[in-house]
Computed example of a mutant assay.
Amino acid sequence: MNKFMTTFNLTFFSKIKAKSFIFTTLIIIAGMFIAFNLDKIINLFNSDDEALMLEVDAEESFLTVFEPTLASFDDTIEIVDSDGSATLEIVSTEPLQAEIRMDEEISDTREQNIQLALNETNRAYVLQTLNLSEAEISQMYEEVPVDFLVASEEGSGGFEAADADETNILNMVIFYFSVILMFIILISYASQIATEIANEKSSRVIEMIVSSIRPTQHLMAKIFAMIAVSVLQIVLITIGGLIAFYFSDTTELLDQFGLEANDQTLKIIIYCIIFVILGLILYLSVSAMLGSFINRMEDLQQGLMPVTFLSMIGYFIALGGISFADNIAVTITSYFPFFTPFVMPLRLLVNDTGHAPMIIGIVIMIITIIITLLLAGYIYKRSVLSTESGIMKNIKRIRK
């Protein structure tokens, strides 16, 4: 046990002291501070904060409709009688045609808001020419009521209201962040652990190492050290995110982007953390196993191709399946252990997904991780002193 801890501590502390670990962690935390204060940063560079004095050259009847309409689209534009920095001239009312003269250019947002207000005013003018009553005008703008019904599960031939599965934006953001974070850390540490193991074998340092510690014990110490480093980085990023959230006034940001929690939010946070950790453990174990086949650094990238391909497929399924989270293809792939950490949390975006699929996915991953670790130890013990130059030759040697 002492030899295991010696190898574990050596690998663990060398990794957390590395500049790549420190810089990556700080950059991600800094990114979260920026994200939580995005509205304030936008306001710093937003010239729309300063009111625009708009002089309108039009009849009083036009102003009566246009002024409140414009205020509903943009309250930073103030209509004045004279000395405005921009002048809106109504060239014609049938059809409505306008021209704006400015002392200096205004933002695209303000241009769009003025355009929208003019469109709405023009619509009101057209409705007036049709001599419609207020009731008829209101009826034109009313939303058509539609009842969406599905066949009753009881088989009675009746229909019942369909469940509304509107995707929550905040839950989607949490899911995206967890998947992207896992993919970045996974690719980084998978390469690191495979490189360390392959480098020891190619430099023949392993001959001295195995003379004082059992090969399987040495491998497991390295795997668990890398797992601990990756989990520590996730914990630090999570703590940094919570600090950024606590010290940032996110109320306006949440309102601006429509981010509201629902009854699935806490569940998706917990399961995303669990699947990110399990995903890292699984892929790091596989990377260590693949690194055991490699005796030359030139074969490293070829040896890691399965990890790269599997993680990329899972990553793209997760990102591409966001619009059909309840599809049968998503359900099936969520139970394939190498795709489970990417795809299973995606199913939580559907409101009727319960705990049972998540627990099944966790059990499948734990079983796969145990099998992978046992297989990695077996392969490493049989190939640790191998001098074969090719991966396929090493595989054939292990099978003997």
Rank of each mutant, 00 (worst) to 15 (best):
T195K: 12
R101I: 11
I243R: 05
T121A: 09
I369H: 08
F177V: 12
S323K: 12
L170P: 06
F293N: 00
A35G: 01
C272S: 15
K19F: 15
L38G: 03
V229Q: 08
Y141T: 11
S82Q: 14
P215N: 06
I193E: 08
F342Y: 15
P215F: 02
V80W: 06
S386Y: 05
Y315P: 00
E134N: 04
S292N: 06
S212P: 00
A228D: 01
I359V: 14
M208A: 05
S138V: 02
A244K: 12
D263Q: 10
P95K: 07
R296P: 03
E153L: 10
F309D: 02
T372V: 09
N199L: 01
I16H: 13
E252A: 05
T87L: 12
A71D: 12
L26P: 00
K222F: 12
G291D: 00
I90C: 01
I27V: 13
T24L: 15
F293H: 01
S230G: 07
V146Q: 07
T265Q: 04
K381E: 15
L130Y: 14
D263R: 01
G240M: 09
G155E: 11
A162T: 04
I169A: 07
M140L: 15
L96D: 06
L38Y: 14
I114V: 12
F338N: 06
S82L: 08
R101Y: 13
V363W: 06
N394C: 03
T11I: 12
D39K: 08
P68I: 09
D48A: 02
F73T: 05
E94T: 12
V286E: 04
R204N: 02
T340M: 05
D255V: 03
S323A: 11
S191A: 04
N351I: 08
S138Y: 07
F316M: 14
I28C: 03
